[in-house]
Structures are given as C-alpha cells and as structure tokens.
Design a protein around this nucleic acid. Structure first.
Lengths: 145, 145
DNA sequence: TATAAATCATATAGAAAAACTAGGAATAGT
DNA sequence: ACTATTCCTAGTTTTTCTATATGATTTATA
C-alpha cells in the first residue's frame, strides 16, 4: 500500500518543472536531476511517460528541455501519479470498467475497497500541482523562520 | 498502491472464521482453505501472524482449530491488515514516530501524503469485521433474489 | 558543416518483495 | 498407537521495482 518511488519522483519532477519554468522557459533534465538528487537517466524514463501523456512538452537538441503544457492548477496529483503508476485503486478488481471477479456477487470486501478507493480519489483527484507549489513555498518560508 | 494478496486473504480468513464460529466453535484451516479456495499452507502462514498478534486463539492437535478472541466489532479492517502488511501509510516517511527524511522541512509532498494517510485511516480504522460480515450477508441475500 | 548538447528509445541487470510450496516437528484427542 | 491438527522454518519461483547502460536522433551554434 505504498506510492512507488517513481510516482514520488514524478511529483517532485513536476513541482521542479513548474517552479523553474514560470515564464515557459525550458528546463533540462540534468538540472532537475541535480536539484532533486535523482538519477538523470531515471528521470528521463519518468518524464518520457509524462511527455507521451501530453503533460509536458519537450524540445530536443542543444538548448532543449521541457516545460509544462498546462497551468499547475490543471494537473491533479492523481492524474500525474496514474500516468506513472497506473491505476491507484487499492485492488485490481476495481480497475476495469467491468468487474470480472467471479466472487463479486458475494464479496463483502468489495464494498470496503470501493470506500477506500473513494477516499483515496477524494484526495488525489482534488489536490493539484498548484497546491503542492503553494505548500512548497509555505514550507520554505517556515524553514527560513 | 495496492493491498497485497496476503492482506486480502487475511480479511477473507477473518470473515470466514467469524461466520463459521458464531458460538466459539473451532474452525480448521483446511475448511477455510476449501471454502475460500486459498492454499492451506498459505493460510497457515497468514493465520500464524494473526495468532501471534492475539487476534485468534488456536487449539492444537486433533479436533483443534481456530476461533476469534474478540467480537467482530472489535476488529477494525486496518488492525487486521497492519498485522499482515505492516503500516498502511502511503509513504515510508510517515511510518516512524520521528520522520528522519532530511527533506521534510521543505517537502511539499509530505502534506499531501499526510492528507492521503488520513483519508485511508478514515476508512480502514472505521470499518470493522462486523461491518464486513453484515455486508457479506446483505450481498448473499441480493444474490438469492 | 562539425561539434556539442540535449532528448529519445530500448535493453538489461540487480535487488527486493510477493506469492506461494514443502517437509517435518509438536501437540492432543480417540 | 494412530490420526488429525497446528506450528515452524526454509526454500522456490515469479514478479515488480529501481536503476543503469548504450547508443540513436535531433537541434542550436561556432
């Protein structure tokens, strides 16, 4: 019941990107890698997924880099995590439109999983990248004081 | 971000135990294994943990078996899952009393993880084994109709 | 046009965790 | 004694996670 390292890195990557590209400047993987102390090759893999999902725009070649394609408020945490981790449902049988589990007709735990799924979605689909940035700024202030 | 198979089996085991030991009768692993279609050796491992946690009482030898030690309403889903899976916190840095992560002072995502953790606990620490049994009975009825 | 700087693509290695499986010891009722 | 059961420990297989490695492709710039 853990968020993967890849998912956590993806959020930090998006926060970093948002905070270092306020005017749409391009940000290099290498810089994010250094600031966040995450392997650049690993970040490449992660951002590749975000790129294919259309969450970031990439420019290749020298002086290239990445920038967000939307305003931070337009990204929910859940949308980012799902690109990287796949479904955030707590059990596999909630993932498909049609539940193919043969037990579902008398599966008490399914009700539990649905409640848990709702609770999780209530957070991840509500909190946005903009919120994360606000919090990051708030914390930085606290840190100074 | 998934509940493990072991955790799901543990809940089904406890539900089965509760429903087949209403008067405190002993229930054999073999019977649970057959009813739930789960390997008996795997169930042994799982119930061993529950036994050590004092959640079930075991009687060894012929005519032996297991029974619950408390009323179903006394077990939260979270307490059962934690015996089997360990902490249900969505990130490791929420597990210890003292957060040792060096980033925590300016970690925006920590606020997110705390919210997510609260949401999860709001479900797993509220729903009890008794609730699961009620739902199981309710579903069984629906199935008949 | 050559060079350097960047992303893009793919493969693979290593470690850790998950999901079982197996064998036999200990215990207790008949 | 015999049988039925839990208890204990180790091992095995599979999968997933995390990260690294290599090189191709693209593009700005000297």
């Amino acid at each position: 019941m853990k968020i993967s390292t890849k998912g956590r890195y993806a959020l930090r990557l998006m926060i970093d990107l948002a905070m270092h590209s306020t005017e749409g400047e391009l940000v290099r993987i290498k810089d994010i890698s250094e600031r966040q102390a995450i392997s650049d090759k690993y970040l490449e893999q992660i951002i590749s997924g975000l790129n294919k999902a259309g969450y970031v725009k990439s420019i290749r070649g020298a002086q290239g880099g990445y920038r967000l394609t939307k305003e931070p408020a337009q990204y929910t945490v859940g949308s980012i995590l799902r690109v990287i981790e796949g479904s955030l449902a707590p059990v596999a049988c909630l993932e498909d439109e049609v539940n193919e589990c043969e037990r579902q007709c008398n599966c008490a735990t399914l009700i539990l999983w649905k409640k848990l799924d709702e609770a999780i979605r209530g957070i991840v689909d509500t909190v946005t990248l903009e919120n994360l940035i606000e919090w990051e700024k708030g914390n930085a202030d606290n840190y100074v004081i």
